[in-house]
């Protein structure tokens, strides 16, 4: 676990409405963590402790759940989260080459974030768009029938948009 003493403490008040709604409903720990991640972008350590205290769980139990499921992140991600599908159909249709192209373009591998905080790359199991394989999803938008060139173009376009803004 990362030490959080040098970090800015999270604003725990943002979570109070979620906790009020769910903390007394048994079995809702995953839902609370999902909502917390929506608020903070990831699950900061102090938020995990706070959720544990409020829900009457041990921090170990909450941490155990947070590390079990791939959806939860313990560190912040870039503005654009690239979810690259590694499902069977994508594998057969060349997702490894797409991954190599993204890595070459952005200089990050699976699980990393670019230094400017713009992009994070995450390889995921299957996005369920197998007929359009290989596929990646960025900010809930799915891009299908990728080639290495097409993937790089998409990333450059997103970066160009950022620079304009």
């Amino acid at each position: 676990m990362n030490c959080c003493c040098n970090k800015q403490p999270s604003d725990l008040s943002l979570l109070s409405s979620v906790l009020n709604e769910y903390k007394d409903t048994k079995g809702s720990l995953i839902t609370i963590l999902q909502k917390a991640q929506d608020i903070y972008g990831y699950l900061p350590t102090d938020v995990i402790y706070h959720v544990a205290e409020e829900t009457g769980n041990t921090p170990a139990k909450v941490m155990g759940v947070a590390t079990f499921y791939t959806q939860f992140r313990l560190s912040p991600v870039g503005k654009h989260l690239i979810m690259l599908c590694q499902g069977t159909a994508c594998h057969v249709n060349g997702s490894k080459r797409i991954q190599a192209a993204i890595t070459e373009e952005l200089g990050i591998t699976d699980g990393e974030t670019t230094e400017d905080g713009l992009f994070s790359l995450k390889c995921v199991a299957c996005l369920g768009c197998c007929s359009l394989s290989p596929v990646m999803m960025i900010n809930e938008e799915t891009y299908g029938s990728l080639t290495p060139e097409k993937a790089v173009d998409i990333l450059r376009e997103l970066r160009a948009k950022e620079e304009v803004e």
């Binding site: 199991a125 299957c126 369920g128």
Partner: peptide
């Protein structure tokens, strides 16, 4: 929870 890669 359709998790099989390749199934949708």
């Amino acid at each position: 929870d359709e998790g099989d890669p390749g199934a949708f």
